[in-house]
């Protein structure tokens, strides 16, 4: 029997935290998105030719959204589970009649929901700067949901693994941000020299951004099926890792 009430209260509790800091939660992505549009879209973008028939300001919308979604998913989910571990309140989760997976649904579900809300806000902000037409809305939502969930899972792993605040912040800053910037968020991979094109192929974020961008403009660096497959593989890896952590009680139970 699934303890649905526990999932619900964990989810609600996490969402309450989000709404308590609503201004911070929303203001920072909105402001940074607006800044990117002013700098890249209007100032620099006007002197850049359109990429594969898409104006530069429009071209960066999916990448910009992914940048926020990825960093926020990881930081929200990692913080969500790290904090109870840090303060000790996790004793309640561990002593409650709930399985690790139910707790996971609550925490990761909340982190993914926050990222979805954020993505929606960013896209709305973007629509004030550019004329946004989404070619495949259903695929767009599918890519977004899958990305939010898989990176929230990844964040959950980071939160479990991190022993201190430093480690908690290192991953988003040193791994996620570089991967997003180098994953073709702000340029088409075809603009790179061949060697760097090959290197970029090893960057998982490339596949996310490419697939997501395809759902907007039908323009992509790699095929959509490859993008989808890569996201699913990443999701599977995160899930396997979490399953192993739960089975062994890694960093949760002694």
């Amino acid at each position: 029997m699934i303890n649905h009430r526990a999932i619900k209260v964990i989810y609600q509790n996490e969402m309450t935290r989000f709404f308590h800091t609503l201004f911070q939660s929303i203001a920072s992505p909105v402001i940074s998105t607006a800044l990117y549009f002013v700098v890249f879209g209007s100032a620099i973008g006007s002197s850049i030719n359109s990429i594969e028939g898409v104006s530069y300001a429009l071209f960066i919308v999916p990448g910009l959204t992914m940048l926020s979604v990825l960093t926020q998913s990881v930081s929200n989910a990692s913080f969500g589970i790290f904090f109870p571990k840090f303060t000790g309140t996790i004793y309640e989760i561990l002593s409650a009649p709930i399985s690790f997976y139910e707790a996971l649904i609550g925490y990761v579900g909340a982190a993914a929901s926050k990222s979805m809300i954020l993505a929606t806000i960013i896209l709305i902000t973007a629509s004030f700067f550019v004329d946004l037409n989404i070619a495949h809305p259903i695929w767009m939502v599918a890519f977004l949901v899958l990305t939010c969930i898989s990176f929230s899972l990844f964040g959950f792993i980071i939160g479990l693994w991190a022993g201190n605040f430093e480690k908690l912040q290192v991953v988003p800053i040193l791994i996620i941000t570089p991967l997003v910037f180098l994953g073709g968020s702000f340029y088409s991979v075809s603009m790179l020299p061949p060697f760097w094109q090959t290197v970029t192929m090893f960057n998982p974020v490339l596949y996310l951004v490419s697939g997501f961008r395809w759902s907007f403009f039908e323009v992509s660096d790699v095929s959509v099926t490859t993008s989808l497959a890569m996201i699913l593989i990443f999701l599977l890896i995160c899930f396997t890792l979490i399953a192993w952590m739960f089975k062994t009680g890694y960093k949760l139970k002694e």
Binding site: R5, A6, K8, V9, T16, E92, A96, P97
Partner: peptide, 11 residues
């Protein structure tokens, strides 16, 4: 809210 949270956790 915290006592409600605890109650919910315990189904």
């Amino acid at each position: 809210s915290t006592v409600n949270f605890s109650r919910g956790l315990f189904n």
